[in-house]
Design a protein around this nucleic acid. Structure first.
Length: 403
DNA sequence: TCTGGGGTCCTAGGACCC
DNA sequence: TCTGGGGTCCTAGGACCC
């Protein structure tokens, strides 16, 4: 049986979803005017999470600072993200896709792969894809692109062709015509740095990449990536559509300040907050961590990080915070301005019931009680706001843009 | 009047063990 | 005693994705 994979991608997801919401409330369609989803426009550091087609035509892009976009287009419509609504839209979208094939891999909040080999044994792929696309539009009010290919890579490349509301195929025999003329940057896993390396080597298009020997590519990008990119450029990918969600390997939270900070008290407060958020999430998921890491970003965007191993895995906020404070002391002089502070945990294991120990820290009971109250509070929406940017405490199944 | 947040994976060097 | 190689763990940094 011929393998057929669909990649379905919501067009400008957050913007489309916000538009649907606003139109339900009788407002006009923001997709038709220059508009963006973004953070607080008065905050000089907030950036754009999603942009409408008219906004994109003005050169406004995702990840661009809002202030910069406003200079390009002063009448830009800015809407704030509505995460509960986005999750609702995502669930509806995934449910429709799942009705076409239960072999579904959710790739992010607004993208999925489905294995359509079986349905396509009896029906034309393009017909099924068009039907799926139209059904989403009709029932949920937003458009998607569907990419069809013999594997996940080509399906994903295909869904990225002309947008919005389109179906594209990228079969193996279409690779030379449709994919090889594209610049290397269009290929999955080729970012700005890799593009730079490849172009410097004279490899500008995916077609050139496809016929460059792996040994030559390896000189620019390393052996491992060379093998992968060479295969991708030739349209080869045998990775399966994974139906079971990944178990997280690490958790982290970070905070960029409205202004760079130097006061140790302010930095410590930020560290405390990120520790609360991360520890809450691992307790919610029933895991403990053995590695604690912190990272700081300076005014010039240079990043430093330090990590350490704990003697025992823990999910107790105070113990994680304690380790983080020690780490911070080892890399920050207490005077250099900091743009950002972050904290992560890794080496996760299921939280085990601890046997009572004579040597247990007498404070531990107090710490646990504190955590219990924090967790209870974090689930109440009115208190979630008080937790600064703790929005994801109830929602990090996904890692979308622009929190 | 630049540049958010949350992940995964890779690399390369050093420590340590066999 | 010296030399070498493989394996594993740890660490810091960096590239990439949405």
């Amino acid at each position: 049986m011929q393998r057929v994979i669909f990649h379905i991608d919501v067009n400008s997801a957050f913007l489309s979803w916000s538009a649907v919401r606003l139109m339900q409330n009788g407002q006009s369609d923001i997709r038709l005017v220059p508009s963006v989803v973004a953070g607080d426009p008065s905050d000089r550091r907030s950036i754009i999470t999603a942009a409408s087609m008219p906004a994109k035509r003005l050169g406004i892009q995702t990840a661009q600072p809002v202030q910069q976009a406003l200079r390009v287009c002063p009448e830009l419509v800015i809407v704030r993200a509505d995460w509960e609504w986005y999750k609702h839209c995502s669930r509806g979208f995934m449910a429709i896709c799942r009705a076409y094939s239960t072999v579904l891999q959710q790739f992010s909040i607004d993208e999925c792969f489905i294995d359509m080999s079986e349905p396509c044994a009896t029906s034309a792929p393009v017909m099924l894809a068009t039907q799926l696309k139209d059904e989403v539009h009709q029932r949920l009010g937003f458009t998607v692109n569907v990419g069809i290919g013999p594997n996940k890579l080509l399906a994903k490349m295909a869904s990225d062709f002309e947008k919005p509301n389109r179906v594209h195929t990228l079969w193996a025999d279409e690779v030379p015509g449709k994919m090889w003329p594209l610049g290397v940057r269009s290929l999955l896993w080729v970012g700005p740095k890799t593009e730079q390396q490849l172009v410097a080597q004279g490899t500008g298009t995916i077609g050139e990449l496809a016929c460059t020997p792996v040994e030559v590519l390896a000189r620019a990008v390393g052996q491992r990536q060379a093998v992968l990119l060479h295969a991708y450029a030739n349209g080869l990918d045998d990775s399966p559509v994974r139906t079971t969600p990944r178990v997280p390997k690490s958790y982290s939270a970070e905070r960029t300040f409205p202004r760079d900070l130097v006061a140790p008290g302010d930095i410590d407060r930020a560290l405390f907050r990120v520790a609360c958020v991360v520890a809450h999430r691992i307790r919610r998921d029933g895991v403990s961590a053995s590695t604690v890491s912190i990272f700081i970003k300076h005014s010039d965007f240079t990043v430093m990080r330090r990590q350490c191993q704990l003697q025992q895995p823990t999910s107790v906020t105070a113990l994680i915070l304690n380790a983080a404070r020690h780490l911070l002391g080892s890399i920050w002089d207490g005077a250099t301005p900091l743009r950002q502070v972050g904290l992560g945990v890794a080496k996760l294991s299921p939280t085990a019931e601890e046997p009572p120990s004579l040597f247990a820290d007498p404070q531990l009971g107090y710490y646990r009680e504190w955590d219990r109250r924090y967790d209870a509070r974090a689930h109440r929406p009115e208190d979630a706001r008080l937790m600064a940017y703790d929005r994801t405490a109830e929602d990090d199944e996904y890692a979308p843009n622009g929190l």
